[in-house]
């Protein structure tokens, strides 16, 4: 460990004797990077808390960040870095919140006449701060990853709406690339909505799918087969000219699955199959 019983006590003494000055200098140093995203009072409160938690952790002599004695310090650092990650602070702006303590410490540290003992102490103290910094950064990175994966899930939810077009007809407009994860979500949501709305027809509209390769076709075919097992029929619509050419060029077989060029055609097809006809009440205007 970075600290033995002796240096631990010295560190604690140094932290407590110069408490106010350390906190002032520390706050001042971090405040330069805030750019108005955090008030100085709030920052000062955070740093005061960190300061006292650090004193509690090193006071026992043997400092060990993963240990029980440092639980409060870890919690504070974790909270600080998570909050920084959410508010859009950059990695170095987050790290400086901890490393600024080093600057402050060097100012108050008594080098004596530059003997080896003082140097050893200083190195031990900075090692402790490095550990805190590393921990902060790890939590920061984890918080960012959680944020990103959460957004990915939200995107998945948003991008696959199942809409009811008519009694007994639901449609799912696919927008964007269809990978395995999305195909799975689409399939589950579509099948569930068939049960919920008691629909016998489902229209899968692929107007927004930029490219159809064998894998995408495979996903769509699986969905259609699953819907058939449940007793519903699927119509694939929104096949653009280039996509039709790709499908033929790749030799993809849609078998007896109905495909239509537009969503409108597919809806008319599904409604007719359900026994509904659409009748024009006024003669079509000549154009």
């Amino acid at each position: 460990m970075a600290l033995n019983a002796q240096t631990g006590k010295t560190f604690d003494a140094l932290l407590s004797a110069n408490g106010d000055r350390l906190v002032d200098r520390w706050t001042e140093r971090v405040a330069q990077t805030l750019r108005g995203r955090l008030t100085e009072t709030e920052l000062r409160r955070q740093i005061l808390e960190l300061h006292s938690a650090l004193r509690a952790a090193v006071g026992e002599g043997t400092f060990d960040l993963p240990s029980e004695g440092s639980a409060e310090l870890r919690a504070l650092l974790g909270e600080l870095s998570r909050e920084r990650a959410r508010r859009g602070f950059s990695p170095s702006e987050t790290a400086i919140s901890v490393f600024a303590l080093k600057d402050a410490l060097i100012e108050v540290f008594d080098f004596g006449d530059g003997d080896a003992e003082a140097l050893r102490e200083l190195i031990a103290f900075t090692q402790v701060i490095d550990q805190l910094g590393l921990y902060t950064f790890e939590t920061y990175a984890r918080a960012r990853e959680e944020l990103i994966s959460g957004q990915g899930e939200q995107l998945l939810e948003l991008s696959t709406p199942v809409v009811k077009l008519w009694a007994g007809v639901v449609a799912v407009p696919l927008v964007g690339t269809l990978d395995s994860a999305r195909a799975q979500v689409v399939m589950e949501k579509l099948l569930q909505s068939l049960v919920d709305t008691e629909s016998t027809y489902a229209i899968i509209d692929i107007t927004g799918v930029p490219a159809v390769d064998t894998q995408v076709a495979q996903h769509i075919l699986k969905t259609v087969v699953a819907a058939r097992l449940m007793g519903a029929e699927c119509v694939i619509s929104g096949i653009r000219p280039q996509i039709a050419q790709t499908i033929v060029a790749l030799g993809i077989e849609f078998g007896d699955i109905t495909t239509k060029a537009s969503l409108a055609d597919a809806l008319v097809h599904a409604m007719r199959a359900n026994g509904v006809d659409i009748v024009r009440r006024t003669p079509r205007e000549e154009s």
Binding site: V195, A226, A227, M230, G231
Partner: peptide, 30 residues
């Protein structure tokens, strides 16, 4: 065969079982 759950249908498709020769419907009424 009526009332197959979505999860069951997905599993059957993944297993490659398509229940050949069986008619299906969403519910008893249909």
């Amino acid at each position: 065969v009526v009332g197959m759950r979505p999860a069951v249908a997905i599993t059957l498709v993944e297993l490659g079982l398509s229940l050949e020769g069986i008619q299906t419907a969403l519910n008893v009424e249909r």
